[in-house]
Design a protein around this nucleic acid. Structure first.
Lengths: 152, 152
DNA sequence: CAGAGTTCGTTCAGATTTGAACCAGTACTC
DNA sequence: GAGTACTGGTTCAAATCTGAACGAACTCTG
């Protein structure tokens, strides 16, 4: 039974700021995407990742890991995007269990149309408010945590 | 129709790292709190804020703003916490519309018991991995965004 | 003090998320 | 090659979140 290590004021300020900001920004982004294109943020991220992927396609599990949602949430969202004609499913040639999500031409078009407004928000509230040093410091800090968490 | 301002590699790296990390950390925290105490992260945050508040109580709307959830989500969570005996509702003496959420003694005890394990996670994946400079840089960066978003 | 406009909190319907359970296919191991 | 263990994706029930609609109470004018 070791002593509890509380956060000192500097640590607490950092943690609180991070927590509030991530939630506030998430809400703002969600609102913008919804009103501009009827997309949720996870849906948008799925499209971005697929568009960037070689062959514009990705395995379900890999995609879920990238976007950071559960496998079942991804299944649900891919269903939604499929209904909307922005994504299609293909069976994976190398693994019969596998499913490949592929972004359609309509999906690419949708992304092209939505991305500017989305990036405006990301810039207006986050990126453009930070100095180059802050930007880089944030990347190294976030990357440390990301790697630790991805390593499980 | 102005030119779209894409993110350069440094900006993109910062944004992607922030996004993934906040989601990964959120998931990890949620998992820890659930298994350790059957609490969700919002519930934990509600308890913390109430415990820190003068009189251990807070108005619903103020609390919702602090925790960054919708008013209806807060109503729901306060109901849950009330069922669990960790929080009580009081009518606000100065405003008949108002409702004060008050943390109970059981709520305080719960918090005392849960906080160490929660802080261990926050430390292990974020705080303890950052230098003092990174911590401070993150605070200034996050605070800029937070203020911009809170100003609406 | 009447009335318009706000603000407070709840209720409601609908959308989304999660983890557990499950089946199908793959990969080891002997 | 049979057997066991693992991985991939879907389905399911339950929990939670959001915005819109609502009634009640406050505030500010005139």
């Amino acid at each position: 039974m070791t002593e509890t290590r509380w956060l000192d004021p500097t640590e607490m300020a950092a943690w609180r700021a991070f927590l509030s900001t991530s939630h506030l920004l998430e809400r703002r982004i969600e609102e913008q995407l919804k009103s501009a294109a009827g997309l949720t943020h996870p849906q948008y991220e799925i499209l971005v990742r697929l568009a960037d992927a070689p062959g514009r396609q990705m395995r379900m599990t890999e995609l879920a890991r990238g976007v950071v949602v559960s496998k079942s949430a991804l299944t649900y969202q891919i269903n939604q995007l499929e209904k909307a004609g922005l994504v299609e499913r293909t069976t994976c040639p190398s693994d019969d269990r596998g499913v490949l999500a592929v972004i359609t031409e309509a999906g690419i078009q949708c992304l092209r149309q939505v991305a500017p407004g989305h990036l405006d928000v990301v810039r207006a509230y986050l990126i453009d408010r930070l100095t180059r040093e802050e930007l880089e410091s944030m990347t190294t800090a976030m990357t440390k945590t990301e790697q630790a968490l991805r390593a499980e």
